[in-house]
Write a protein that binds this DNA or RNA. Sequence first.
DNA 1: GCTCCTTGTGTAAACGTTTCCGGAAGTCTG
DNA 2: CAGACTTCCGGAAACGTTTACACAAGGAGC
Lengths: 341, 341
Amino acid sequence: MGRKRLHDAADGRPTVHTVAARAGVSIASASRVLNGVGGSAETVRRVREAAAAVGYVPNAIARSLQSQRTGLIAFAVEDIGNPVYVAMMRAIEAVVAESGRQLLVHATSGQVASETALLRRLAHRYVDGMIISPIRVTDSHVEAMTASPVPVVVIGQLPDAVPVDNVRTDSRTGAGLAVDHLVAGGRTRVAFLNGPLDTVPGVARDAGFRAAVARHGMSADLIEVGDFQYAAGRAAAERLLARSRPDAIVCANDLIAVGALHALLVSGLRVPEDVALVGMDDTELAQMSYPQISSVSLGSEIRGRLAAQLLLDRIADAGLPPRREQVPPSLVIRASSGGGA
Amino acid sequence: MGRKRLHDAADGRPTVHTVAARAGVSIASASRVLNGVGGSAETVRRVREAAAAVGYVPNAIARSLQSQRTGLIAFAVEDIGNPVYVAMMRAIEAVVAESGRQLLVHATSGQVASETALLRRLAHRYVDGMIISPIRVTDSHVEAMTASPVPVVVIGQLPDAVPVDNVRTDSRTGAGLAVDHLVAGGRTRVAFLNGPLDTVPGVARDAGFRAAVARHGMSADLIEVGDFQYAAGRAAAERLLARSRPDAIVCANDLIAVGALHALLVSGLRVPEDVALVGMDDTELAQMSYPQISSVSLGSEIRGRLAAQLLLDRIADAGLPPRREQVPPSLVIRASSGGGA
DNA sequence: GCTCCTTGTGTAAACGTTTCCGGAAGTCTG
DNA sequence: CAGACTTCCGGAAACGTTTACACAAGGAGC
């Protein structure tokens, strides 16, 4: 009927007009009842009944346009295949869900262009805030983040001058912990398999490793660089074994460590008897391997939780001064370095 | 100035009114230029310049309200920690991105309540479509899917009567492939570590395993059930070894297989010499293990790609009859069952 | 020189909500 | 019972876009 078409949405679904008409009240009253604010007992009853009868569901887009917020939080991550990000995501999701919002995840493939595009898209206001964990931080990142009209929280290092909330760890020290542990276990030829040196974690871990071996009076020549993936770790370990014979290997993350473990076992070396191994990030991958891999924990769950909290706080009060949280690294010793079972 | 406030958004950001005023044209003209449709050379120049000068970015919410579409596609997945979903996600993302849309991922933790809540939330119209891969399909799932005003595509089995696009595989046959391969390799005591029997893949794989062992005249008593996780796989394998001595194990997915491998190695058994192992899903986990694990591929990338294509087609034309795609399983043989390196 | 078509423009009405504001009715106080 | 106060309601204006429609100006065709 004409009457009906006037109140339904373009696609024929009921709107607040439909409900109001059916209940015989104004749209203002209908909206109030549906939002649980005000309304006489009778009005509430009639509106509720009408809404149920037509199967009314509010249109989130329209609501967002009016309220200026979407209830969505984004988490942008470069490699969703890396369990460390899955751990962070779970922690973030818990906090976000508790605030009644929804988390959505974007995979950026670590492309700077794709990350900044995502950041810029924030200006479109499709989400209320974003948590991003970039492994490279370029000028265009910084510019896009500071220009963003919606709050951004960074998990990772950031130049001090950038006025953006962030939560960081100290993977430089973390790499040192790994070396110290191996040296304490009597290892004298400690190698390092790192990720790219044009990444923030790459340089931090490189510095940490070099400082640590120097501290122990050892040379830092057993270094191989690839990317932060399994295949690269395996390839790097093969290159390393082809040119030298280390008795311990520190890896810049667990994916690399699993790759290295594979290479070691293939070449007939025993872990930890012949070569001790330590990973980083302390992901479930480290526990799933055999032998289980010692790993430097960088507190991914904690960092995720803190980041989410920082973001929610800033959404609640945009005037807050930029905050910075630091999570200390710790070493989890397992069989691959001669520890636990 | 009052002038300015009149045209800017509530938060002080420029709107199309701001741009129009600055360019000295109507908002209609401004909008047309910004969308690249129409406008005289002079108007185009002025509007472009004004937009650049004030740093105008269109508000996606307002645009969506008008256009009735958001350009967002959701992928709902029960366990983002399972690499098979990561593989699907990558495939989906590729297709979705090519269509100029964005993919967002929701983790449901496999909770029926959470999945149906997500499906119902589709009615809010925040996304243009959703791909979901539920491991349990309840009546409330089916009801929520059919009632959804936005298209839904299911990856996985679905009752035939449900008029929803879906892409399925045949993991029943897949389990059979694994058994056949092991028997052909001379194994006679083949066990099966499965996921929960109240899940769709759980029952399919159970049926496939039972049919296959029966076909070979073997009994199906070496079955342990847990959930689809690493820890459950490891525990199930330990239970199995405590009560029997199989010479081959089929696992309902790769996570379980990695857990089983761990248990086998811990108990001093050699793989594949003492016990052969076959997983399912053919994820990167299977290749990362040592020895590498044979696995039944269920074509996750292909399924993801097909699902995305189905969804985009339906978004383009809602009138399409429901479609159904089938991807055959295939066995990838690796070292854990005596094959390759 | 008149009509007809094309092109460009502006006004205004959507899209589906929420909310401000003024008024009507009811309740309490003295 | 008059006045002040509360409660509830409806009209209308937002939120920031896109777009249907009407109209004006200009060129082509006769």
